[in-house]
Design a protein around this nucleic acid. Sequence first.
RNA 1: GCGCCCGUAGCUCAGGGGAUCAGAGCAACCGCCUUCUAAGCGGUAGGUCGCAGGUUCGAAUCCUGCCGGGCGCGCCA
Length: 583
Amino acid sequence: MNLFRHIAGEITRALQDMAAAGELPAGLDLSAVTAEPPRDPAHGDIATNAAMVLAKPARRKPREIAEALVGRLRQVAGVTAADIAGPGFINLRLSDDFWRARLAEILQAGAAYGDSDLGKGTPVNVEYVSANPTGPLHVAHARGAVVGDALANLLAKTGYGVTKEYYINDAGAQVDTLGRSTYLRYQEALGLQIGDIPEGLYPGEYLKDVGRKLAERDGPKWLNQPEEIWLPAVRDFAIDELMESIRDDLDAMGVHMDVFTSERALVQSGAVEAAFKALSDAGLIYQGRLEPPKGQKPDDWEDREQTLFRSTQFGDDVDRPLKKSDGSWTYFANDIANHHDKFRRGFAEMIDVWGADHGGYVKRMQAAVKAITGGKGALDVKLCQLVRVLKGGELVRMSKRAGSFVTLRDLLDEVGADVVRFTMLTRKNDAPFDFDLVKATEQSRDNQVWYVQYAHARTRSVMRQAAAAGFEGLDAAVLVAARHERLVDAGELSLIKLLAQWPRQVEAAAQAHEPHRIAFYLYELASQFHAHWNRGKEDGSLRFVVEADRELTLARIALVQAVGFVIQSGLGIFGVPPAEEMR
RNA sequence: GCGCCCGUAGCUCAGGGGAUCAGAGCAACCGCCUUCUAAGCGGUAGGUCGCAGGUUCGAAUCCUGCCGGGCGCGCCA
C-alpha cells in the first residue's frame, strides 16, 4: 500500500467530518491537500498542508483549522502524534508497529512491491528511438531507448496499458540516399572501383556488408541499369538490413518493442489523406504564405503560397506547411497521420521520446494531436539532451563502424547493457549527459550502478551467511511471520521507513514521466543499507545474523530480504538484472 | 530576431512541483578494518540557489525582464 495515499485519505475523511459537523464550510475543494514526508525527518513521519491550503477558501485562520483537525487525526489508526508546526503545518507521527507492518507487505509482494493500479489500465503509447534506418544506432539513440523503455516499464508497473512503439522513418529522401549509397557498395562488392564516396551519400563502412549481401543475393543483375530500375529494390533491401541490425542492437540492450510502424506503409495506406481530410473538415487547413525566419534566412528562400495547418490555434508559433513544393507530404504531415493512427488505435495518451535537436518540433506536434483528436488526445514529449562519450575525461569521437559518432554497439561492447541502461538514467532527460566509459565501470561509490548492485549483492550475501549459520528455508512465509517487533534499532526503523516510501516514489515518477527519480531513490536506499551494514561492523549486536538469538535474526533477515526486493523492484523498471555477488 | 531547454557548494548533479533550517557524490581535511565484501562507513569544511523585479502569510520552486550556455527556426527526417 501507498501509505502516504492512505493517510491522505484519512485526512480527507477527517476534513469531511469537520464539514459535516459544521466546523468547516461544506463543499471545499480538498484536491490541494497533501500528505508527504517532511524534508526533515525530525519533524515527523508525514506532514500535511491541509490547514494552510484551506485557510483562504474556508475564511479561517490556518491554526484554527489545524487545532480542530489535529484532534481528529490523533484518532486515526497508527497515528501516535499530531502536532502543529510553524504557520499551520501538521506533522504526524506513526507508530513503529505501523511502519513494521509494511515489512510483511513487501515480503509478500516481493519484487512486485510498488506495483499499483494507478493507471487503471489506461492505454498509453510510448514511442521512442524511431531512428531513420540509414545507419547504426548511436549514443543519442541509446539514451532515448533507455529513457523510453524505462518510462514504459514504469507506466506498466503503475497499471497503465503500455505499448512500446518504434516509428520507422522509411519514406523520405533519406532512404533514397541510403539506396544510392548501398548501390555503390554493391558495385564495390562486385569488384568495381568506386573511388571516394560522393558528397551527399552515406560514407559509413557499415554499408559494405549490406552491399555485399545484396551482391550475394542478386548477383550482377542491377549493374548497368538505370537508377529507376534498381533504386526501389536496393533501397528496400537496405532498409530491411538496417532495421534488422537496429533490432539486434536494441535486443542486445534489452529493449523490445511491441510495435514497429512503417512510415511508408502508413503513407501507402492513405492515412495521411485521412488525417488531412479530418483537419480540412475542421477548417484548419488553408493556402497561405509564411514569413521567412528572421535573423537567419535560407539563401534559397522563395516566397510562395503553400498548404498550411493552423497550428497557431493550438499554441504553436506559426502555422506549418503540410505539403512540399513538389506536392508531396512533408514529414510533419506524415507524423500527424502517425499520431492520428495511434489515436484511432485507442491511445489518447501518447508519449514521444525525442532528441533535443527536435525540440523545435514539439509545439506543432502537440498542436496537431489536439486538433486531430478533437482535444481528446494528449501528447507528452520527452526531449533527451546531448550525450557526450568520454573515456577517463577525454572526449571519444570516432567509431570504427560509423565514422563520425559512437555507436550503441560500441557502448555495449565497452561497458555492457546493464551499465548503459542504469547510467543513462542517473540524469534528468533534459540535462546534457557526459557518459564516461571509465567511470561507468569503476567500482566506487560515485558509480551509482555499481553502488546499488553492491547493496543488492550484500543482501544476497547475508542470506548465504544465514544459511551457513543454520538458518534454512527462509521463504516468504517464514519471513512474514518473523517477529518484526524485534526490530527496534534506529537504523533498522529508518530503513523500513525508506522502504515504505517506495510505492509513492514509483507513482510519483510515473505521473511525472521521470524514470530518473527511480535511480536516485535506489542510490539512497543503497546508501542507507551500506551505512547500516557498517554499523554492524562497529557494533556486533547490530549484525544481521546473531546465532544466539534466532528470533531476532529472522526479523533482521526479513528486513534484509525486503531491501533486496525493493532493489529488485527498482532495477526491474530499468531492465537491469540484480547482481547476486560482485566478485 | 523568435521558440524550447539549462544556469543550485571548487567539480558532477538531486530537489517529490508552492509553504517547518538549502541536499548528495567527487575533490579537501579528520577518523573507523581480528568478525556477514573497508570495492565500504562516519565526521568537518564549503552555496546571497545566474541577476533584478513581481505575486503570496511563504519562492531554488510560480510570473516578468535581463545576463550567460545549449538546441532549433518553410519545401530534412
